[in-house]
Each structure stands twice: as structure tokens, then as C-alpha cells.
């Protein structure tokens, strides 16, 4: 039992990712975000969450994934608690909570692009797919400057 962890899974492009369920505060449909001029491209804007202003990070851009073709519709925001406070991550869609066993974990392969390496802790080998596990602190605190638009 000790080795079981629960992940809140979500989709980006055609990959499956997971955040530790304990760190996910809530999931909401993305409201209209207020753009922040001059901000790094990974920042998709600001949102008002019950009187608090949160910064939303576009996870596709942060992780160097291709831009979504139709980005206007139905993306979701995962509100995650990190050391510096709350951060909102913009994702394509949110899936189930998945139980995984530590034994299925594996470090990222050597040929992972350097720009993504700081953010990805590794993967859990699920029956039908791979669950990418992100380092929440790293993803929420440092912006990926490798990307340009």
C-alpha cells in the first residue's frame, strides 16, 4: 500500500501527464485570461480565482509541445499548490485519478530534449500508455525560455 500514489491525469497534445493528486487544488474550465504584455510566452495570462489573481502557464508551450490548432475551445485549468503559492496550468483536458505503484516508475530516457528535462521527473508505465510525471515545483517556478513564438 505504501508504494501507491495517486495522480490526477491530464492530456497535452497526445501525451498523458500526471500531477500528484494531493497538490491539485481544483480543476476549472479556463475562463478568459487577461494577457500580460511582454511576459514570457509560456505565460498565458492572469485569472481571477475568487478574488485572488493567479498566473496561468500554458503547459504545451512550457513543455515545448506543438501549439493546439483550435486553442479557443474548452481547455482546462488545473490549480496547483506550490511553494510560491498557487499556479494555474492550462491543459487540453483532464482525465481520471490514476493509482500507480512505485514499481512502475522509470527515469526519463537519455535522449529527452534538454529543454524539457528539468520539468519531467520520469514516467509510470501503465498498461496501455505512459504517464508522464512532472516536477511541480520546477514547472511552476521556472519558465522555459527555450521556446519562442
Amino acid at each position: 500500500m505504501d508504494t501507491q500514489t495517486q495522480f490526477c491525469s491530464f492530456q497535452l497534445a497526445d501525451l498523458c501527464f500526471g500531477f500528484d493528486v494531493q497538490r491539485v487544488q481544483e480543476v476549472i474550465r479556463s475562463p478568459l485570461l487577461a494577457p500580460v504584455p511582454l511576459a514570457p510566452p509560456a505565460i498565458s495570462g492572469l485569472l481571477n480565482l475568487r478574488g485572488q489573481i493567479l498566473t496561468a502557464i500554458d503547459l504545451r508551450r512550457q513543455l515545448c509541445l506543438p501549439e493546439e490548432e483550435d486553442s479557443s475551445e474548452g481547455r482546462m485549468l488545473m490549480i496547483v499548490c506550490c511553494e510560491e503559492g498557487q499556479v494555474a496550468f492550462l491543459v487540453d483536458s483532464v482525465g481520471d485519478v490514476i493509482d500507480v505503484d512505485e514499481s512502475s516508475f522509470e527515469s526519463p530516457p537519455e535522449n529527452l530534449p534538454a529543454s524539457v528535462r528539468p520539468f519531467l521527473r520520469g514516467v509510470h508505465k501503465l498498461d496501455s500508455s505512459l504517464l508522464h510525471v512532472l516536477d511541480i515545483e520546477a514547472t511552476a517556478s521556472a519558465l522555459n525560455h527555450e521556446i519562442s513564438l
Partner: peptide, 27 residues
């Protein structure tokens, strides 16, 4: 006045953000 999060602190052009009467965010 609400602070901008840690990710945007480096931008000298902004002093913070605020929530307007209609609930939207203005810088």
C-alpha cells in the same frame, strides 16, 4: 492592488494587478 505572482515579478512595467467590477483582471 494585488501582487503579480512570482513568475511575473521581473517585469518592471507593472506594479500589480487588480480585479475590476465585472470580475475581469486588469494590469
Amino acid at each position: 492592488v494585488k501582487p503579480l505572482g512570482h513568475l511575473l515579478k521581473g517585469l518592471p512595467t507593472y506594479a500589480g494587478a487588480t480585479i475590476m467590477g465585472d470580475g475581469s483582471v486588469a494590469i
